[in-house]
Amino acid sequence: MNDVTTPILTLRNVGKRFGTNQVLKGVDLDVQRSEVVCLIGPSGSGKSTLLRSMAFLEEYDEGEIHINGQLLGWQSISPRRRASRSRLNQVRSSLGMVFQQFNLWPHMSALGNVCEALVRVKGLTRSDAERKGRAMLDKVGLAEKADAFPAQLSGGQQQRVAIARALAMEPSLMLFDEPTSALDPELVGEVLQVMKQLAADGMTMVVVTHEMGFAAQVADTVAFLDGGHIVAKGAPRDIFHDTEHPRLQQFLQNYLDRNAFWQDLKETPA
């Protein structure tokens, strides 16, 4: 099951509908061990829904998702019967997730946030959990903020605590749902830096992001979603440079236009 050639995450024909709105229309994706996959696409393209389906925060209603060879969320596919809570937790125990809104628990310190599941779920003693929690906070560069409460931390620091909280559970796959979209531009870098380090350490990652620079630099594979499909997928070079796909070209052009404000200034006489 942990064979290097077996994908850690496989999606086969995954579909999801909200009422009459078909958000995902048959998505196929394999994620190999230590691979970094970035999901890009316009809003409403289904990329967040796809990522949330990988954690079964959305119940995908067509196709199959396997994590480490185990079917996620469902006990059987036809008819669809939900897996028991303990079964779901067991399959999900190998994944960690980081959210756009951090989702730290505001009544617990940074260390408390990291230690909570270590104590309650993994059954570590308080002192073992704290040792491990401090090591995780150190890893994201926040060792000295262990006793701070979320409200006392900047957005970037909160997101790094959230990353430490997920890492503490020793996942083999990390999901990031627009981890820098709620941050002030100046704080984006520190979070991306932690994510780059994680990727360099060999963590398997699926990242929904609007940070094309990060995708270009760190991703092994970039997948472009539009209208509930993966319409283009490949190495960053293929996606960002050599694509012939009109919708992707348009998407990238929009992104470039938005980020090229200085070009206008250059052309305007002072």
């Binding site: 997730m97 989702n103 599941a117 559970m169």
Partner: peptide, 18 residues
């Protein structure tokens, strides 16, 4: 309480009682 906090708890494996 923001729903995301409960999703985080759920994903980390905390039981409904916890």
């Amino acid at each position: 309480i923001p729903h995301g906090q409960l999703e985080a708890a759920n994903l980390l494996g905390l039981s409904p009682w916890q």
